[in-house]
Every structure is written in structure tokens, then in C-alpha cells.
């Protein structure tokens, strides 16, 4: 489903991803953990085409995402090509990034109508179902700014799902929330993980949540994967020394 092949990403002289190889299968839910600056968020941003690779190729469903085919060669993707391939991917951001000039419902219907070409009725139906799913069916006519952070993030989840992406990226979706609002958001995501087969890539510091929803954990350090495995194994019995110190630090914080 998702394949990173020798991917390199630099910001200036700072190498964030260092010849990274990994893949995620269809329907798999993978959580990326590791210290900040280890390149986890960059992976999501590359997949969302918010950043460009400096080397290597990213594939989604066997199709190159960072590049496009010209004849038999791969050349860096142009904007037009990106517009077609990035529809397969949806993303929920740390800061929600709802459109404050639109009502909740319009946030969710905007892209289905203007990108997927759905009729207004279809888009509204779909949006209402999704907003019910995230528990905000009664807020469709409010403006995002009148909602709490947790509610805004749930709208953002509905907005991403309305595009029916094959891959959903969750970038520290609870980090900007007050502690008491975290649970609602995570419960919604647990529901979605259980009731759908959508592929998920998750960056989070909520280890219990990672354990509950993931099939696999990838531990990152300095742009490389230092350890990977099933949640039970990684959390109960980590092998790599970096993983042990990282998990100890995270769990002590709680």
C-alpha cells in the first residue's frame, strides 16, 4: 500500500530521513514512535505531499507519489500529477486546521463537492453521517471557532474521512488538546479503526492508544528505524536500547 524506497529528506544540512525503507500493507495500522526530530512527522508530510523528497521514491498502491513516470523514467512529480495521486491520502493535523470561515458542515462538504464532484445532497448526506459518527451531528451549523479543541479535531477527522481516502495519516492529533479532551478524540479513532479497514499511519505520544489500535510499531531514531514489531512486544519487551530509554522517558512523564 505504502512503500518508502531509499527515501532521503534534508532540511538544509540537517538529514531528517536517511535512506529510509519501509512499507505498510493494505489495511494495516502502523504507529511511528520515537523522540522528537526523529523524522516521524516528516514521513507523514512526505506522504501528504506537503514536502518533497531529496532522494528515493515514495509509492502508494504501487504508483509513485513523489515522482511520475515519463516513458520508463521517473521524474519529480508536478503539481498536476500530485493533484490526482494525493486524493488517496487524507490527513488530520496536530492543529486541526479547520477552515474558520466555513461552518462545520461546509468544512466537511467543501472538498467532496469541489474535488470529488459529488452533488451537494450526496456530500451533505455523507458529511452528516460522518459528523454523527464523531458525535457532532448537532453542531453542523456552528463555526469551528465556537467548538472546543477536541470537537474541532473530531470535525477534522470527519473532514478527512469524507474524502474516502485509502490511507489516513494522523499527525499528533491529540498533542494540542487539553488532557480532558483527549479521550473523546481517541475513542472516535478507536471506533474508526475497529469498524473500517482503512490503512492508518499514526504519529502519537499516547502509548496506550498506539497499543490499542496498531498492528505494528516502528521505533525511529535519527531518521532510521531502529526497531519494529507488534505492539505487545515493543511495549512489554523492547530489544533495542534506544527504544527502552525512549519508552521509559515517555512513561515516566505520565
Amino acid at each position: 500500500m505504502v512503500l518508502f524506497e531509499q527515501v532521503v529528506k534534508r532540511f538544509g544540512s540537517n538529514i531528517v530521513l536517511d535512506h529510509l525503507d519501509f512499507s505498510v500493507a493494505q489495511g494495516e495500522r502502523v504507529t511511528l514512535i520515537g523522540p522528537s526530530g526523529s523524522g516521524k512527522t516528516t514521513i507523514l508530510r512526505l506522504l501528504m505531499t506537503l514536502e518533497k523528497v531529496n532522494g528515493g521514491v515514495v509509492y502508494v498502491e504501487g504508483q509513485p507519489l513523489s515522482h511520475m513516470k515519463r516513458g520508463s523514467q521517473l521524474v519529480p512529480a508536478n503539481e498536476r500529477y500530485l493533484r490526482t495521486v494525493r486524493k488517496k491520502i487524507g490527513m488530520v493535523f496536530q492543529q486541526f486546521n479547520l477552515f474558520p470561515n466555513m461552518k462545520v458542515l461546509d468544512n466537511v462538504t467543501e472538498a467532496p463537492i469541489h474535488v470529488l464532484g459529488l452533488s451537494k445532497e450526496e456530500a451533505v448526506d455523507r458529511a452528516k453521517q460522518l459528523l454523527d459518527l464523531v458525535g457532532l451531528g448537532d453542531r453542523i451549523n456552528q463555526h469551528p471557532t465556537s467548538l472546543s479543541g477536541g470537537q474541532q479535531q473530531r470535525v477534522a477527522i470527519a473532514r478527512a474521512l469524507a474524502m474516502q481516502p485509502d490511507v489516513l495519516l494522523l499527525d499528533e492529533v491529540t498533542s494540542a488538546l487539553d488532557p480532558e479532551l483527549v479521550a473523546d478524540v481517541l475513542n472516535v479513532l478507536r471506533d474508526i479503526a475497529q469498524s473500517t479497514t482503512i490503512t492508518m499511519l499514526i504519529v502519537t505520544h499516547e502509548m496506550q492508544f498506539a497499543r490499542d489500535v496498531s498492528n505494528r510499531i516502528l521505533m525511529f531514531d535519527k531518521g532510521r528505524i531502529v526497531e519494529e514489531g507488534q505492539p505487545d512486544k515493543i511495549f512489554s519487551n523492547p530489544e533495542h536500547e534506544r527504544t527502552q530509554t525512549f519508552l521509559r522517558a515517555v512513561l515516566e512523564e505520565r
Binding site: M48, R86, I89, F93, Q95, N97, F99, E110, A111
Partner: peptide, 27 residues
């Protein structure tokens, strides 16, 4: 207008013209 607004529009595959019209300019 925060950078996140442009990014959210990208994440929803919105074309540039529509992003200007529906998201950036109104704000």
C-alpha cells in the same frame, strides 16, 4: 493566514484556484 490552512487545503486535494477563493481570500 496560517500555513496550516494551505496545508489542509492540500490534504483535501483542493486545486490552487479553489484554495484561494474558498479558504485563503475570505480569511
Amino acid at each position: 493566514v496560517p500555513k496550516g490552512q494551505w496545508e489542509a487545503a492540500t490534504a483535501l486535494s483542493m486545486p490552487r484556484g479553489r484554495t484561494w477563493q474558498a479558504v485563503i481570500l475570505p480569511q
